[in-house]
Design a protein around this nucleic acid. Structure first.
Lengths: 204, 204, 204, 204
DNA sequence: CATGAATGAGTATTCATTCAT
DNA sequence: AATGAATGAATACTCATTCAT
């Protein structure tokens, strides 16, 4: 128990250290230009140890991308308690942006997109879990608001995408084309106006 | 003059041939995986000739991307003649999609995103001329429709992004993560619903 | 004594288990491509335990090769009892082939040859004990047959090599160049004709 | 013509230089331990140039092995003119040995055998062209001697292997297990005795 | 002015062996 | 005494770019 437990703890610490280093490297350099040796160096392990944990560069990249999904919860609670639909959706939008910018997900998305022609599966996986799933969280919020009579009933699968699209066009897309892109000063207005347009049609 | 003219014509033909080959290669393989030797082979010139025309891979890529802007016009005419705002905007949306999918611009956008960390300028240029400019064309259409009293007056800089965003979320973004992505069967409904949401707020 | 005896027995069991696994691995993959980690896995011990028993890959290989000599006996008995020289020598040839093919010695010989440039001693040892010694067994048989007046007296050191060579050329050498080589259908004829040629000169 | 011819000459010189370096390296180190970088260094070219000429290490090895076949002619002429069968066959045997030892073919054969478990085709090719074909040359000599009534008619496919086998057992095989093996002092006696045994049965 | 052969730096991955527990 | 995680050196192959003809 002592030995096994010790080993497990060390192993998990190394694994985490590798994933942190890999995430940083992939965000900085993209998939192709990230170097396994550099990741190993940053993680303070040998390349062989790195390969014990992750059988290939692709596998390591997938693990890093996967790990970023788990942190992506938008939180449904506000939809339950918020006084108005607009309050609930504003919170969700801000939560989304904090996550995306706070964790460097823009850079990771660029890396995924870059690798898509060479390895389409990683792109499709990311889209399914990183994009679709988050849109489905928006849909769940909308459904809850409809249940609470704060919104009209309607096809929320479709409209969750409308809402997400209005926001992303100005707040996410530009970051794909500029590594130094920062959220614009009128971010709050953009969110507010998007919600107004949405609610013009769907408010109860 | 005869000889000189001949030479210039040959040179320009080669230049065009190189750019065509390069565009095809960048679209197929992305920036990083595209190989200069392969581009030269496809263009039926030597690598040295290729480098005479374009001093580096980045320069060639920039030239290819630049050339693609010119094909990105949306056409303002319909906004002048269409009977309703919806008609005009539907036409614009379809025109946009035909262009994007017909010319392989999705693949080119992926390549640009891919190259962005390594060469931010090309990403910023593309965004300014390939994205912002097209959004501004939408804005021009909206302005025209307002002038014709088919829409309420409002901040069209902002709302052109809303409209574009609603459409792109379902019709463009997914293609960034999947090289085999095809326009979905309910494309027309997506366009229609986006316009309904938009017009719920901005119809005259 | 009980404890010590137990430990010795366990240790010897592990040693045997390692050698069996190593033999299989060397036969399958040759010396260079055999992996110590794989041998340890097959033997169900840790790599560290493996190295406690055998200080290096070369040492382990030598041990495996050494152990194979003991299985290489041809048996002199038939030479005593057989009615004719041809009978005795046919039996010896068949015994030789059964051993060589039954125990995978072809693959082991390939591995030894493979390791010869890197570790000449193992090659020379194998040749001395695995080849020369077996030829000397043939010589002993010939001497016995001369004693029994079934063959003419002659230099049997030299002719044992002639006889072995005629057989090996068709029945062993080809297996060095083809891991899937099987004994040919006309094996018996090859043996018979080799003996006829031999006896044309040396029959009593 | 000038340019093209110049380039062809340079290219062929480099190719030859690479093949010489590769042959030396493969003979010294065997296939697996031979390093492409070292071959390039010895040949005084870059690794990239090496790969322009030979697409892979396997391809280079095959080319080296192939090239050794072409030098393997035993010469049928002596069989036409020699006074006795023994004279003709002695010449052939000596020619064979000169070739094998003069060109370092023993080391190359070891390399082929080493690589056989990993890449069986190279082993089979070598056997077909390096061993069988030379045995067939011996067969052709025997057939010619039969035609000239210097030998009895018989199945020369089979007996050419007998003759080759008697010689190789003492003069080639030992070299597989010892990189420093030299032809023994009694080489001529071994050849002579092998021929006597052979002729005891097949002399006219 | 065009050629294409040559360059050399850069990178993922493997494996025999050691060592802290 | 046994473990198995960690090491680091070693190697085939690619590609943007240059230069002698």
């Amino acid at each position: 128990m002592g030995l096994e437990g010790y080993r497990r703890r060390v192993s998990e610490a190394k694994r985490k250290s590798i994933m942190d280093a890999a995430r940083a490297e992939f965000q900085d350099s993209g998939f192709t230009h990230a170097a396994m040796a550099e990741i190993a160096r940053k993680a303070d392990v040998s390349t062989a140890t790195l390969y014990k944990h992750f059988g290939s560069k692709e596998e390591l990249f997938s693990a890093v991308v996967d790990a970023s999904y788990s942190t992506m919860g938008l939180g449904l609670e506000d939809a339950q308690t918020a006084k108005t639909a607009k309050d609930a959706l504003t919170k969700a939008a801000e939560s989304y942006l904090n996550m995306q910018y706070g964790m460097g997900l823009n850079a990771l998305m660029r890396a995924v997109i870059s690798e898509t022609p060479g390895d389409p599966q990683v792109g499709r996986d990311f889209y399914a879990r990183g994009v679709v799933m988050r849109n489905d969280e928006v849909k769940a919020i909308l459904d809850k608001l409809i249940e609470r009579k704060l919104l009209k009933a309607h096809d929320t699968t479709l409209t969750s995408r409308q809402l997400a699209g209005m926001l992303k066009e100005s707040l996410i897309w530009p970051a794909m084309f500029d590594p130094d892109f920062k959220l614009p000063a009128n971010k709050d207005k953009i969110i507010d106006e998007a919600l107004e347009t949405f609610l013009a049609r769907y408010a109860a």
